[in-house]
């Protein structure tokens, strides 16, 4: 029985793998079936995981269970549950979440904009300073290095590659920033610098593209290894 089940799993995974690969030729019922399975099962999977982690694990354990226990105790005169580790603030989240559901009732659906506004405000506020610190300040600081020396170690690395490298980093970062300037048209000396900037960006994109190819191939090697090896047993 277990052996049979193992075979079933092996064939199921191979069936789905080939279904997705068939999309490369063109859209077809096999792909549509794999897609339907993927969407349905993964949507269910993530909801269940979110529900247990966030709703149960964070809200219910952190506040909900206690609150209802407390109300129940007050009504029936029983023992009030212990409040250790309870954070009643979590109710704010639950109430905002509930307001979200009011969209289902057209008349008061506009209330759902409150949680939306809350989320947008929180996201905007939360990231603003964060981005100034990690994106702007850290990067500016990292660029402030002597032109003909390496940043590493105490020694004065005077190799040609290192010197050209630091100069290139300085020129590239500077001209790249000029490219992003919105206030000035790209003309004259300013335009020339901006053009140098875009050239640097292009090298960046080409290089990162080429660098990623290897890891992308590894993924395909893994899948084909599964098909030919695990499934068909053709690889010794």
């Amino acid at each position: 029985m277990e052996v049979l089940f193992e075979h079933f799993r092996l064939w199921l995974a191979a069936f789905l793998t080939l279904g997705i690969f068939s999309f490369l030729y063109k859209d077809n019922p096999w792909y549509k079936l794999s897609e339907a399975i993927f969407v349905g099962i993964s949507a269910g999977y993530w909801f269940v995981v979110l529900f247990w982690d966030n709703f149960y694990g964070k809200f219910w354990v952190g506040a909900g269970d206690y609150t209802f226990g407390w109300i129940g105790a007050k009504l029936s005169g029983g023992e009030v549950p212990s409040s250790s580790g309870i954070d009643l603030m979590l109710w704010v989240g639950a109430i905002l979440g509930f307001l979200m559901l009011l969209r289902l009732i057209p008349k008061i659906g506009w209330l759902s904009r409150w949680p939306l506004a809350f989320i947008v405000g929180a996201t905007a506020g939360l990231w603003l300073i964060n981005y100034v610190a990690s994106n702007v300040m850290v990067q500016v600081q990292a660029t402030m290095v002597p032109l003909f020396s390496s940043t590493f170690g105490s020694g004065f690395d005077s190799s040609l590659g290192a010197i050209i490298g630091t100069i290139v980093i300085f020129v590239g970062t500077f001209s790249g920033l000029v490219y992003f300037f919105f206030s000035k048209a790209h003309t004259g000396a300013f335009g020339t610098t901006a053009k140098i900037g875009i050239l640097f960006l292009m090298i960046t994109f080409g290089a990162s593209f080429g660098y990623t190819v290897m890891s992308r191939m590894s993924l395909l090697i893994g899948r084909i290894d599964y098909l030919l090896g695990d499934w068909l047993g053709m690889i010794k």
């Binding site: 490369l24 090697i221 290894d225 090896g229």
Partner: peptide, 17 residues
């Protein structure tokens, strides 16, 4: 593009086999 896909597939599968 499907010809390119085919080449990639063969290039990966053949050395494995």
């Amino acid at each position: 593009r499907r010809i390119i896909f085919l080449f990639i597939f063969v290039a990966v599968a053949a050395p494995l086999l």
